[in-house]
């Protein structure tokens, strides 16, 4: 899809495939994440594009798609004058749940989203965290197979954030929902996502599984050490290994096969180094993110 606002290209020939599961949609501010989401829902008209969502042609059947999608907007939005339970029930009714059933379902979802007695309070009086939970309940009330969550953990305290991520995991693992999670918070992505799409400057920069992205180009181990790491580092470099000292003092040794691990222990013993932990190293999501973003800036 392609979308531009006058001279500014918001999405430039974006092409992607989202697999079932939890997919993280990453990108710096203004990278086109929200435009992509709004385009998928037909809230924004694209200049060009075609595709399918849940087997339905997009954008021709966008209203049927909306029926099957739960959307949590990033913006602080609410229906003024209604209380929490009425808001959720109203969204249920708009999605086609009949009167009393919609209200029953709204209560059920409020329980799931941990909206207690606050559900009887006007939404205007809600805190940011409560509004996030309410928007989550509204997105979920019609039991959609696909959820689009735009910054769902923004404004939540650590406990609430963990609860929200736990709910997202439950929805995927236990109930088979597919989730597109747009966020800036990289630990959230690491915590719940299987796949990552990174948008930078309106273009898809990365689209891969988190497992593939985390795997270094060559086998690498991370060695956490008690005390001074310099002797071991010197020894490994002398023996032709590529070694980098991380900011926390640990060593990152690249190009090392599994059968060379005993040799590594041997060298540590010989240099009198106490190894606290030796683990396969993973690429940091932060590095991937910054690398992709800076690559675009350089262009």
């Amino acid at each position: 899809m392609t979308k531009s606002y006058k001279e500014v290209a918001a999405l430039s020939d974006v092409s992607l495939r989202v697999e079932p599961g939890v997919t993280g949609l990453l990108g710096p501010n203004g990278s086109g994440k929200s435009t992509l989401i709004k385009s998928l829902l037909g809230l924004v008209q694209t200049q060009q594009g075609s595709g399918s969502v849940l087997g339905m042609e997009w954008p021709q059947r966008v209203r049927e798609i909306r029926d099957q999608v739960g959307y949590l907007p990033e913006d602080d939005c609410y229906i003024a004058g209604l209380n929490g339970i009425e808001s959720v029930a109203f969204m249920a009714h708009l999605a086609g749940l009949p009167g009393t059933e919609g209200l029953r379902r709204a209560h059920e979802i409020c329980d799931f989203c941990d909206i207690g007695e606050e559900r009887y309070r006007p939404v205007e009086s809600y805190s940011t965290g409560m509004r996030q939970k309410l928007k989550f309940a509204q997105a979920l009330v019609h039991d959609p197979p696909f959820l689009i969550l735009d910054e769902p953990t923004t404004g939540l305290d650590p406990d609430q954030r963990e609860s929200m991520l736990r709910r997202i995991r439950t929805l995927y693992r236990t109930h088979g929902k597919s989730i597109l999670l747009s966020t800036h918070i990289l630990p959230d992505v690491r915590s719940v996502c299987d796949q990552v799409i990174m948008l930078v400057g309106g273009e898809v920069r990365i689209i891969d599984t988190l497992e593939n992205l985390s795997r270094p180009a060559e086998p690498t181990v991370q060695i956490a050490i008690y005390g001074d790491s310099a002797p071991l580092m010197q020894r490994l470099q002398n023996d032709g290994f590529s070694v980098i000292e991380e900011s926390d003092g640990s060593l990152r040794v690249a190009g090392i096969d599994t059968d060379q691990i005993p040799e590594l222990w041997q060298k540590a013993a010989e240099t009198g180094t106490s190894v606290r932990r030796l683990t396969p190293a993973m690429n940091s999501l932060d590095e991937i993110f910054f690398h992709a973003a800076s690559e675009t800036e350089l262009r």
């Binding site: 049927e64 959307y71 939005c77 229906i79 969204m91 708009l94």
Partner: peptide
């Protein structure tokens, strides 16, 4: 209150 985002996320 940006409620239109909620309305139009439904069909």
């Amino acid at each position: 209150s940006k409620a239109y985002l909620l309305y139009f996320s439904r069909p």
